[in-house]
């Protein structure tokens, strides 16, 4: 686990530093701009899907999906960040309590 922590830390820090050091011309390339706009969208979407619907190698539909759906609606309605998180977690908690 320390390997993942330290390698990931190094990667994340160097990327932060690169932005402050690299000449503008490189990062203003359209491909670089596009990739940095697209990467977080694709990775976060994939991460959310896996965290919500996967248990090990199985796809499951449980209280997480309901909590996620409520959080999605709240986020679409531009609810504040904390409210989105609280509604998502709260929905899953209530469902688990009554089932």
């Amino acid at each position: 686990m320390w390997t993942a922590i330290l390698l990931g830390t190094l990667g994340v820090y160097l990327l932060k530093l690169v932005g402050l050091c690299v000449p503008k011309s490189v990062l203003e390339q359209p491909q670089v701009q596009q990739a940095s706009a697209l990467l977080p969208v694709a990775l976060l979407a994939a991460l959310v899907a896996v965290q919500t619907f996967a248990t090990g190698h199985d796809l499951v539909l449980d209280a997480r999906a309901a909590g996620f759906a409520v959080a999605l609606v709240a986020a679409l309605l531009r609810a504040p960040f904390l409210l989105v998180v609280a509604l998502g977690a709260g929905t899953a908690a209530v469902l688990r309590l009554i089932t």
Binding site: L7, G11, L15, G19, K24, S36, P40, L47
Partner: peptide
């Protein structure tokens, strides 16, 4: 794990540029 974390950090480079 480290690769996923690093790739998610790519956006920080763009912030840094700005």
């Amino acid at each position: 794990g480290a690769a996923t974390a690093t790739l998610l950090g790519v956006r920080n480079s763009l912030y840094g540029l700005n």
